[in-house]
């Protein structure tokens, strides 16, 4: 939850990508973030090769063992290897993050485009809808939707995605309006291009930069929200090794087998930090004015 507050106006980019990359490389934290994110992706892809055990395999001879050479993160109450479960959890975290942001950005882009393009009543309705969405705390809305749909990962992804698209819509709407009012449109019309094509052609490149920033900053938010929903019992259900569910599963043992709940928590923190570093870096690189300050 969070970390995207500063990102409300990432500035309109359009700067050549080489410059952006160079700036990004000079930002040490962004490099660290990029390394973390790449490592996460690799971990998710190669989970079966990295994890020393089957994440679901129960071993009644090794219950609640503290971290050791055999079990780096210890074992849980059913003798499952916590390290392997955390490794497999990477898959769920990335899946959730990417899927949620995909829903948010598609919904946001469609509604934002419609709002800016059609204007008038459509704009008024969609703006009103955004007002409504903003009045309900996102987590509460996601909870209500997940509660209505019932638990499970896919329902949770849907619930979070449907709750969090407003920023994307605002972004696209702003761009569309900016282009619409510009003189381009007259010129392009004269050439005989249809309205929406022109707008799309100009809006798309202008929104790529902020979209990248938003995406990298919304993925960790989605991961945190998902963990909260799982913790409250409305998200992923154990034995799925989703990190929030792992914490929920291990919380009863926190006082004497801390590794079960602490390790997945650390995994969440590292992941969220990695994406935030990278997102901050992108923002700074895409908007030189802000880069100077931070």
């Amino acid at each position: 939850m969070g970390a995207m507050g500063e990102a409300t106006t990432p500035g309109v980019g359009g700067s050549p990508w080489t410059v952006v990359l160079r700036r990004l490389r000079r930002n040490q934290l962004a490099v660290v973030g990029a390394i973390i994110v790449v490592a996460l992706v690799l971990t998710a892809v190669f989970a079966p090769w990295i994890a020393p055990y089957d994440p679901a395999e129960q071993n009644f001879d090794a219950l609640l063992e503290p971290p050791s050479r055999d079990h780096w993160f210890g074992t849980d109450d059913l003798g499952r290897d916590v390290f392997s479960r955390v490794i497999y959890g990477t898959r769920y975290a990335l899946l959730i993050g990417v899927a949620v942001v995909a829903i948010e950005s598609i919904l946001g882009a469609l509604l934002g485009f419609a709002s800016g393009y059609f204007g008038g009543k459509v704009d008024a309705y969609i703006s009103r809808l955004i007002d409504i969405m903003l009045a309900i705390p996102t987590l509460v809305l996601a909870l209500a939707i997940a509660g209505a749909l019932g638990g499970g990962i896919s329902n949770m992804i849907l619930a979070i995605g449907v709750s969090g698209w407003t920023e994307f819509a605002r972004l696209v709407r702003g761009e569309v309006l900016a282009i619409r009012n510009s003189t381009y449109i007259e010129a392009a019309k004269a050439v005989g291009l249809s309205d929406w094509r022109i707008i799309l052609r100009h809006v798309a490149p202008n929104t790529v930069a902020p979209f990248i920033v938003y995406t990298t900053l919304y993925i960790p938010t989605a991961i945190l929200w998902a963990a909260s929903l799982s913790f409250l019992g409305l998200g992923a259900q154990p034995p799925t090794p989703e990190w929030g569910a792992l914490i929920a599963d291990g919380r009863g043992y926190l006082s004497f087998a801390w590794w079960i709940a602490v390790m997945p928590g650390v995994a969440i923190m590292v992941t969220v930090m990695g994406f935030n570093f990278l997102g901050d870096g992108f923002r700074d690189a895409l908007d030189p004015k802000m880069a100077r300050q931070t």
Partner: peptide, 14 residues
């Protein structure tokens, strides 16, 4: 960055 990155229910438990 530390505080923003931790799930708050987890922080609470700790």
């Amino acid at each position: 960055l530390f505080w923003v990155s931790a799930p708050n229910f987890w922080l609470g438990l700790i």
